[in-house]
Amino acid sequence: MHELSIVKDIFSTLEEHYEAKVEDIQKIQVTAGLLSNVQPVLIQNAFDAFIADNLIYRDMELEVVVNDIIAHCHSCDKDFKVEYHRFVCECGTPSTDIVQGNELYISKVIFKQSL
């Protein structure tokens, strides 16, 4: 599994984006589509292992939000939810036009109370 690569990427992304301010982050939220193959429990464990070894991040919290898979049907021109990995609209038209579900990103960053 590549949860640890993702966790490392989370921290390098935060460091790049927030520079010195990363030390003030209290909590982050990561949004993962069901197709990103991210297991919330595994990423939580990898995250906990990572911060245990990195003093400045020790108190940081992680929340993982999982997104459903949504595809677009070109026959009906509307979006539909993909359930049981059946990428077929209720009208019978298959679609691989994924509107939501592939994504993996940091969706929220909460900073500690400023002094």
């Binding site: 690569s5 990427d9 984006h17 301010k21 209290q26 940091i106 969706s107 960053v109 909460i110 400023s114």
Partner: peptide, 27 residues
């Protein structure tokens, strides 16, 4: 160009940043 934003925060307020920082983009 550091972070003037945080300086403007009221005392005791939480700052929440809604973002879309994509991961694994380097790949």
């Amino acid at each position: 160009a550091s972070n003037p934003k945080s300086l403007g925060n009221r005392v005791g307020s939480l700052q929440c940043d809604n973002t879309t920082l994509h991961l694994l983009k380097a790949n």
